[in-house]
């Protein structure tokens, strides 16, 4: 697969060079053609800066951005075949919906009839065929979001950038739009770069995810890779729920702080961190780990047990509430936890 965007040692520094705040620190990245790529990270991690650099709203301090092989970093935003769906939507308030959607094509000097036809097609694509003559501020949040999407797609960019585009919507609408976005991406065949701090959103929508923190990319991979095999504690902590246990690794297993043993192969000997997903382990009488119940939280589809394990409190075990599977446990009960070695990820930290 050819690469749509290729970023080489991109840095962005605000303030005085050398001592300013580094929003991006030597980032390199390949984004493939026709990919739904997500930049995921907490606020302030540099993901929006990276997006703005690709769009051309800001100039990098150093590095190269290539779009289908062509260097982009010196082109102004209006010369880049890249469109953005803004977090605030940024619809033009003094224009109708149709004028908003047709704006990009009009700037390209396309004939009126062609613009009208494209606007109509775009409105059908985002399933809002009847709002063409309305003003942008007469629409609901979800409708504005769709129009912003239609406007960005109308001039057929090679790459579409989405800056936290769903975060202003309520839960239900967001779920619908997630599916809608995936459908649009498949239908248009345009490369989508999506920025979000919502890990669930990233996991459900993306082909690949780049996890960012403090101006650096920590890990790039498919949602499964990121979730199943996080490279370090920050990634494991940011994506989903994770229990961390300090342990000491030796040849055939690891020893926890209180002396309990777990059989898992560690790549390195010495002090390690065990990352264990709460839904991969279960409470069973035959379990290998000893724990004490601190709290039982009933969440409907499953029950969350907060345990004290190896002197560490807040160890989570998530159990599905199957028929007849209820275990009437209460605070202070001793339990055993079944931890299959496949559920443990050993991080050398």
């Amino acid at each position: 697969m050819s690469s749509a965007i290729s970023i080489e040692s991109l840095s962005m520094e605000y303030g005085t060079p050398g001592s300013g705040h580094k929003a991006l620190d030597d980032v390199s990245l390949e984004i493939r053609d026709n990919e739904f790529f997500t930049l995921l990270g907490p606020s302030g991690c540099g993901k929006t800066t990276l997006l703005r650099l690709i769009a051309g709203f800001e100039q990098p301090s150093a590095g190269i951005i290539r779009l289908y092989g062509e260097p982009m970093q010196d082109l102004p935003p209006f010369r880049r075949p890249v469109n953005t769906v803004f977090q605030s939507y940024a619809l033009f308030p003094h224009m109708t919906v149709a004028q908003n959607i047709g704006f990009g094509l009009e700037m390209q000097g396309k004939p009126k009839a062609e613009i009208a036809a494209t606007v109509e097609r775009m409105l059908a694509l985002v399933k809002l065929p009847h709002v063409a003559e309305r003003r942008a501020d007469q629409l609901s949040g979800g409708q504005q979001q769709r129009i912003a999407l239609a406007r960005a797609l109308a001039s057929r960019p090679k790459v579409l950038l989405l800056d936290e585009s769903l975060s202003a919507l309520d839960m239900k609408l967001r779920k619908d739009m997630q599916i809608e976005l995936k459908r649009l991406q498949a239908e248009t065949g345009i490369t989508f770069i999506f920025v979000t701090h919502d890990q669930e959103e990233a996991l459900t929508m993306s082909d690949r995810i780049a996890v960012m923190s403090q101006g650096r990319i920590l890990q790039v991979g498919s949602p499964t890779e990121i979730y199943e095999a996080p490279v370090n504690r920050t990634v494991a902590d940011f994506i989903g729920e994770t229990n961390f246990l300090a342990a000491d690794a030796f040849a055939s297993g690891v020893r926890l702080a209180d002396g309990q043993l777990l059989s898992v192969v560690s790549p390195t000997p010495g002090p390690v961190t065990l990352a264990i997903r709460p839904e991969r382990i279960s409470l069973q009488d035959s379990g290998d780990l000893q724990g004490e119940v601190e709290e039982v939280v009933y969440i409907g589809t499953d029950t969350l047990y907060l345990l004290k394990v190896a002197g560490q409190s807040g160890f989570r075990v998530r159990q599905q509430n199957r028929l007849g599977a209820a275990q009437p446990l209460k605070r202070g009960d001793a339990v055993r936890i079944d931890v299959p070695s496949a559920a443990i990820r050993v991080l050398a930290e």
């Binding site: 769009a55 051309g56 709203f57 102004p76 935003p77 209006f78 890249v82 469109n83 953005t84 803004f86 605030s88 940024a90 619809l91 033009f92 308030p93 704006f103 990009g104 700037m107 390209q108 406007r151 960005a152 001039s155």
Partner: peptide, 17 residues
Amino acid sequence: DWRLVEAAFDLGANRFQ
């Protein structure tokens, strides 16, 4: 809202447009 101007640039409008 200067983001509107950014949006216009993004959609291919030059400074004059």
